[in-house]
Amino acid sequence: MVLFFQLLIDGLASGAIYASLALALVLIFRATRIVNFGQGEMATLSAYCAWQLCEWGLPVALSFLIVGAASFLLGVFVFRAVIKPVSKAPVETIVVITLGLFVFFQSLCLWLWRADQRAFPAMFPSGGWDILGVRVTASALCILLVLLCLAATMGAIFRFTRLGLAMRASAYSSEKSLLVGIRVERMLMLGWGFAATIGFIAAVLVGPRLFLSPTMMLPILLYALASATLGGWDSPLGALVGGLIVGVAESLGATFLPFIGADLRVVIPIAVTLVILLVRPVGLFGSSTVVKV
């Protein structure tokens, strides 16, 4: 039983990371019907930049703040320069292009910083507490806290601000949004910016657990894709819940299912995806419009 709760806590912490990247994916998908396969690698680039600033002697918090803002601009730039020109292209074209983003940003990181693994600055305090034999680390708690803040902030923006309302409207129908005077393209651009910043947050959360390397976000992206599919591609709430479920499933499955074990744990998100596609293709919180592709 102690082991179960231990795995649950660990799973939730990893799940929070998947959830944040899934949130970035879902934000973009909702607004533009595009799955940005390059989201994780864009986050890797941001993480490297943050690491570089720290190496140059900037305080950790300051460099994270700078890179958080720069990531926003990166997202805006990618939308303007790469996505907008092909926004009317067939979906296959756009998939290839976002796969291209994936390759491009991974190669860029490899070229700039080589394949050596670097230690990412730790942001959260070390240590933790033993509660009835279950080890709750401070970093796990902080990760969950960050996700909670992120979710609350996004929720508040979408519900209570004019900007959030306009972004939701643009995601719902670009034509209807144009008719109420929303500059839809600007909203999509902002969406890509927010997504890139959220992706960076995911990278910051995962950074201290792994080492910094050009491929560090690849497994996270796989889990995030599974999380978004599980939660429903047009539901931010679904992305959060999906991420946490995938995290827990991974942690429990790797331990309690002997035929999977630690080596095959990456199979779990794929299995989750497969099952949800068979049982409920729109995902737990998705609406049926997503099915009509």
């Binding site: 719902y172 008719l179 929303i182 609406s287």
Partner: peptide, 26 residues
Amino acid sequence: LAQIPQGRGTFGDFTVEENLAIGAYT
């Protein structure tokens, strides 16, 4: 210049009040 398009032009997953708020976007 305002238009009520065919199919109403309302946002189905918005509340009534949110629809009015977005109508006043400008």
